[in-house]
């Protein structure tokens, strides 16, 4: 059994003439919080799309939970994606559904649970992320940015995923809410760690990253500059990382 939940083996990605990812070789540790860090345009989002199988590498392999996902066909890949939960930059809640219905959505689509079971599970999930009953029946447009992120997290957790991805989870949030969201992510991770749950955060928020992550992958111009545990990362002598740390 691999110690990694996600592995990149010789992964390169080209769009037309421009190379976005250059020969990536690294693994994301299972059961840990790993942050993919870097400036804008470093290739973080493209990397995340490779993990989800939304983009296929030009060369190399992306192995998730022992499965080479770039070799999967369309339908098996869609099924495989149920291993992932995802929180989007601006939550990406379905705006025509209430918070409750947003969280219930994947359960209704992919499980055979009864409405009563769905209700219990959804309300439990919403409660675990600090959303009360009143807010559960509101539309996303009636919620604050922080609450939308919480509902997004609850929706991402609905199918008990093995890997949780967060794309710039604190974009547009004030500092207090930012820390609340990170605390929640950490709590969620610890609550699910017994089943090999891994959290992958795409971010450029260096200070929160250092506080909450176990590992940091630092990317620049499509290359992995460093992949270290957080303590080693803080001591890195790499000039690019030093510059980033001093921001």
């Amino acid at each position: 059994m691999s110690e990694y939940s996600v592995e990149f083996k010789n992964v390169s990605k080209k769009f037309g003439e421009s190379t976005i990812l250059h020969d990536l070789n690294f693994g994301i540790h299972e059961g840990k919080i790993t942050t993919i860090l870097g400036f804008s345009g470093a290739g973080k989002t493209t990397l995340m799309k490779h993990i989800l199988g939304l983009v296929k590498p030009t060369t190399g392999e992306v192995i998730v939970k022992g499965t080479t996902i770039n070799e999967l066909g369309e339908l098996p890949l869609r099924e495989f994606r149920r291993n992932f939960g995802m929180v989007f930059q601006y939550a990406a809640l379905f705006d025509f559904l209430t918070s409750f219905e947003n969280v219930a959505f994947p359960l209704r689509e992919f499980t055979k649970l009864s409405e009563k079971e769905i209700q219990d599970k959804v309300l439990g999930l919403l409660e675990s992320v600090g959303i009360n009953r009143e807010a559960a029946y509101k539309l996303p447009s009636e919620l604050s940015g922080g609450m939308r992120k919480r509902v997004g997290l609850a929706r991402g957790l609905a199918l008990d995923p093995h890997i949780m991805l967060y794309d710039e989870p604190t974009s547009g949030l004030d500092p207090i809410t930012t820390h609340m969201v990170y605390d929640l992510m950490k709590e969620t991770h610890l609550r699910n760690i017994s089943r090999g749950f891994s959290s992958i955060i795409i971010s450029h928020d260096i200070h929160a990253t250092i506080k909450y992550s176990d590992y940091i992958v630092f990317m620049e111009k499509g290359r992995v500059v460093e992949h270290l545990d957080t303590e080693s990362f803080k001591r890195s002598e790499n000039p690019v990382i030093r510059r980033f740390l001093e921001l």
Binding site: R78, R81, M86, F88, A92, L93, P106, L159
Partner: peptide
């Protein structure tokens, strides 16, 4: 608003 991406990530 990435809602279609959210569907795709769920496998829909």
């Amino acid at each position: 608003t990435e809602q279609i991406d959210a569907l795709e990530v769920m496998g829909i």
